[in-house]
Simulated assay, not measured.
Amino acid sequence: MIHHISIDAQEPLRVASVLAEIWQGKVYKFLVPSSFLVMPFDDYGTHIVVFKQGDAWMPGADTESAKVRQTAPAQFMPSHAAISVPTSPDHIEQIGQREGWRVMARIRGDVVPFSVVEFWVENRTLFEFMPPEFVLQYEEAMQPESIQKMMGQPLNS
């Protein structure tokens, strides 16, 4: 289970506020300046940290903890997340359109094995939001027999 992720954004507070709206959560200042914590207060402590664009986790020296440092901002992110949310697909699409961000429903059978709302934060970071009616499809698609049918045999035993 993944309990939290972090992303960066050009407008961290705006992004955190939009994510909180979709997730029906709250936004807090995070420990790093100009960064924010989005909490839905689920049973798992799940959250997203939104840093300012270019901030990245880097290893500390020797025995020091990881630190957030400024780097050259990337245009797009190689990572993405699929997240269950309590918000309807239509409302998620309305929020994305209001923000001017790419958003589209991907329906099972439309090249994907489960339905999601593809939501591009600031048109650069991908979230696949799954309203309650999409979650069962995802769970079915992630079973060992379904994965083997899609991906073939695993590379390790």
Rank of each mutant, 00 (worst) to 15 (best):
D8H: 06
Q75N: 02
Q70R: 10
V135A: 03
V135L: 13
T125H: 09
P154G: 09
Q70N: 04
I5G: 00
S65R: 13
H4C: 00
Q24D: 07
V85C: 13
R124W: 04
P131C: 09
P40A: 14
L155S: 15
F41T: 12
Q153S: 11
I48K: 11
W57A: 08
A56F: 07
P113I: 02
K52F: 05
V68N: 05
H91P: 00
V27P: 11
F41H: 15
H4Y: 07
S17Y: 01
Q153L: 14
Y28L: 11
S157N: 12
M130K: 09
G25D: 12
I22N: 11
T71L: 04
Y28C: 06
L136K: 09
G152R: 07
R108C: 06
Y44N: 12
M104R: 06
T71A: 04
I147W: 01
M142R: 05
M39W: 05
P132W: 11
A56K: 11
M1Y: 03
I92L: 02
V135P: 02
Q97K: 15
W23Y: 04
M104P: 00
V103P: 06
K29Q: 15
R108L: 01
I83V: 15
S157E: 10
V27H: 11
D8T: 10
R124I: 05
L126W: 00
V111N: 08
V18R: 09
M151H: 09
R108P: 00
A66F: 14
E139F: 03
S6M: 04
V27F: 12
Q148T: 10
S65V: 03
D8A: 08
Q10T: 13
Y28K: 15
I7S: 01
P40H: 10
Y138M: 14
W101T: 05
V68R: 06
F36H: 15
E128Q: 13
L155C: 08
V135I: 14
Y138H: 13
P73E: 08
Q53C: 04
M104A: 06
V50R: 08
L13H: 15
T87W: 05
Q75L: 07
Q24G: 08
K149T: 04
H80T: 06
P89Y: 00
M58L: 10
Q75F: 02
D43Q: 14
V121K: 00
A56L: 07
A16W: 05
I48F: 11
F36I: 13
L126N: 08
L31M: 14
Q153A: 15
V50D: 07
E11V: 00
P113T: 02
Q10D: 09
E133H: 13
E99L: 02
M130T: 09
Y138S: 15
V117T: 12
T125R: 10
A16G: 07
V38K: 13
K67G: 11
P113K: 01
A61W: 06
F119G: 08
D8K: 01
